[in-house]
C-alpha cells in the first residue's frame, strides 16, 4: 500500500497529464461521430451571451450591406410571387372548388409544410474543418436539432446543438455535412466541401449522361432537411472522373459565408411522420 502511494506521488504529474489528455480525446472522439453531443458548444449560456454582446456592437456597421441584401431578396421573392399568380392552376379541373387545407378528402394533398423562423447570426467561422455558426434562437423559440438553415440567397447548414436561447449550426462548410442536390434537368448528386475555400462547394456522384454547363444553377431536393428548390450555387468547373464514370462539379456557393447576418431556420412539419415511416420500414 505504501509503495502504491509513493508510486502515485512520484508519477502524479504524469498520471494527471495522461488523465486530462484521455478526457480531451474522448470528447473529440464523441464530436467526430455524425451525431455529436452537447458537452461543449458555443450554444451554451456564457459563450452565447458574449457572442451576442459582440454582435450587437458589430450589427450597426453592417446595416447598409444588410439593407441591400434584404431589398435584393424582396425583389426576388416578388418575381416568384408574380409567377405563381400568373399561373392559373385550376383552369383544367372540372369542378372549381375552394381549396381547404383541412379537407383531407380532396385529392389535392398539401405535400409538405414548412415553417420559417428568422434568426440573427452572432458568430461565424470559416477557417476550421467543421465550421459552426451560432444563432440567437434556441429551443424556447421552437428550434430543435437537425432543422435546416438557409440564408436569403442559399443554403447555410443544419442545427446541431440547441440551448434555451441559442443554437449552433453546422455549416455546409464542413466535412461532416452532405446535402442532396439536383441539377436543372433533375439529375441528383450530393454536395460536399473540400475543406479549403469557403465559397466553393463540390457536387459529387453526378452521372456522366447529365448535361451540365458552366453557369447552371444547382438546387436542393425534398429528400433532406431543406425545403426543395433552394439555390445552392452555380457551376464553376466540371471534372470527368474516369474511374467510376461520374462527374464532379465545382460550384460557386450562392451564400456569401463571409458576411452572413440573418438566416432562416426551416422546420419541416412532415418530417417526424416521414421519419417514423422510414424507420418502421427499415426495421422490417
Amino acid at each position: 500500500m505504501r509503495n502504491f502511494i509513493l508510486f502515485i506521488r512520484r508519477f502524479f504529474n504524469l498520471i494527471l497529464f495522461l488523465g486530462l489528455e484521455i478526457v480531451s480525446i474522448v470528447m473529440i472522439a464523441h464530436t467526430k461521430t455524425l451525431q455529436g453531443d452537447d458537452i461543449v458548444s458555443s450554444a451554451n449560456f456564457v459563450s452565447g451571451h458574449i457572442y451576442k454582446e459582440q454582435s450587437d456592437v458589430k450589427y450597426y456597421f453592417g446595416l447598409r450591406k444588410m439593407n441591400d441584401s434584404l431589398v435584393n431578396e424582396n425583389a426576388r421573392l416578388r418575381i416568384q410571387l408574380d409567377q405563381i399568380h400568373s399561373k392559373d392552376t385550376l383552369s383544367d379541373s372540372v369542378v372549381h372548388r375552394r381549396l381547404n387545407p383541412n379537407d383531407t378528402t380532396s385529392h389535392i394533398v398539401t405535400y409538405a409544410d414548412y415553417v420559417y423562423r428568422s434568426a440573427h447570426v452572432i458568430n461565424n467561422s470559416l477557417n476550421a474543418n467543421d465550421n459552426y455558426i451560432t444563432i440567437d434562437r434556441g429551443s424556447s423559440d421552437g428550434i430543435t436539432k437537425n432543422m435546416g438553415v438557409i440564408s436569403g440567397t442559399g443554403i447555410v447548414g443544419r442545427v446541431e446543438h440547441v440551448s434555451a436561447h441559442f443554437a449552433s449550426v453546422l455549416s455546409v462548410l464542413s466535412s461532416k455535412l452532405t446535402v442532396s442536390a439536383k441539377l436543372k434537368d433533375g439529375t441528383f448528386g450530393k454536395i460536399i466541401w473540400d475543406e479549403k475555400q469557403p465559397d466553393v462547394l463540390i457536387m459529387e456522384d453526378v452521372q456522366q449522361q447529365a448535361k451540365v454547363k458552366k453557369g447552371d444553377s444547382v438546387f436542393t431536393t425534398a429528400f433532406s432537411y431543406f425545403s426543395p428548390d433552394i439555390l445552392i450555387g452555380t457551376v464553376l468547373k466540371i471534372e470527368q472522373i474516369k474511374k467510376n464514370a461520374m462527374q464532379r462539379i465545382y460550384l460557386q456557393s450562392s451564400t456569401n459565408f463571409h458576411s452572413l447576418q440573418y438566416v432562416y431556420v426551416i422546420e419541416n412539419k412532415m418530417m417526424p411522420e416521414k421519419k417514423q415511416l422510414e424507420d418502421s420500414s427499415a426495421k422490417k
Binding site: 464523441h30 458537452i39 467543421d130 446543438h161
Partner: peptide, 8 residues
C-alpha cells in the same frame, strides 16, 4: 467552448 471544437 467558444469554437465548437470539443477537446481539441
Amino acid at each position: 467552448d467558444f469554437m465548437n471544437t470539443a477537446g481539441m
